[in-house]
Design a protein around this nucleic acid. Structure first.
Length: 201
DNA sequence: AGCGTGATCTTT
DNA sequence: AAGATCACGCTG
């Protein structure tokens, strides 16, 4: 059928976390809401977090109630609450029982913008989902979404053409104090919907 | 550059 | 039980 896009399947997510952080750039996060409302955003900025050897990762000291979902199989959502205000959305990576996830830091709105504008209280497109807390707000993602699968219909990631190597930028991760030096942030160079972290490098 | 806001984790 | 930390966003 024309216009019907197949969601990415499990195998896509079965790769090392850092590689997944890069492969997700340009792909489209989809949430199917009640009443035929579709929310879509192109992934333009990600960060990799690994349970082993990465002190910035919630799971670096082992499994707890909060970070438990990071140990699940690839392709599930890890959502957590922070700073008393914000939900952060991650896609779980690495095999089951191994902690890893890709934080989605910024999306470019593609569908459902009026819903997003209302939730965000702003109309500027580049301000709707240009940050990890903003995008969960815009897409109404909270702790109830923790553990949801990307293969169950409600949430999915749509395929899109692979980006050329030169379109992808790399930098240190934003807003962390430990393991600052690791260059595990990936983004689409020059995209206007990036987070406040940095726009080009 | 400063602060709100509250859960989680560490230290007493 | 108390204190520090925090993968942020907004105001100024």
């Amino acid at each position: 059928m024309k216009g019907f896009v197949q969601p990415l399947e499990k195998q896509f997510f079965e790769c090392p976390t850092l590689l997944l952080a890069e492969k997700l750039l340009g792909k489209i996060l989809v949430r199917r809401m009640p009443d035929d409302l579709m929310l879509k955003g192109r992934i333009v900025e990600t960060e990799a977090y690994l349970g082993y050897g990465d002190e910035a990762c919630h799971a670096w000291r082992g499994k707890t109630e909060r970070n438990g979902m990071m140990f699940a199989e690839p392709g599930r959502l890890y959502v957590y609450f922070t700073y008393g205000n914000h939900y952060m959305l991650n896609i779980v990576s690495e095999p089951e029982h191994t902690a890893g996830a890709v934080l989605l830091r910024a999306l470019e709105p593609l569908e459902g913008e009026s819903f997003m504008r209302e939730r965000r209280g702003t109309s500027l497109a580049t301000n709707l989902m240009s940050g990890p807390g903003k995008l969960t707000r815009a897409m109404a993602i909270d702790l109830g979404c923790n553990g949801r699968s990307l293969f169950g219909g409600e949430f999915s990631v749509e395929d899109a053409p692979e980006l050329p190597e030169e379109a992808i930028g790399t930098s240190a991760r934003v807003g962390i104090t430990r393991s600052r030096d690791l260059p595990w942030r990936k983004f689409i160079i020059g995209n206007p919907h990036l987070s406040r972290g940095r726009v080009s490098g």
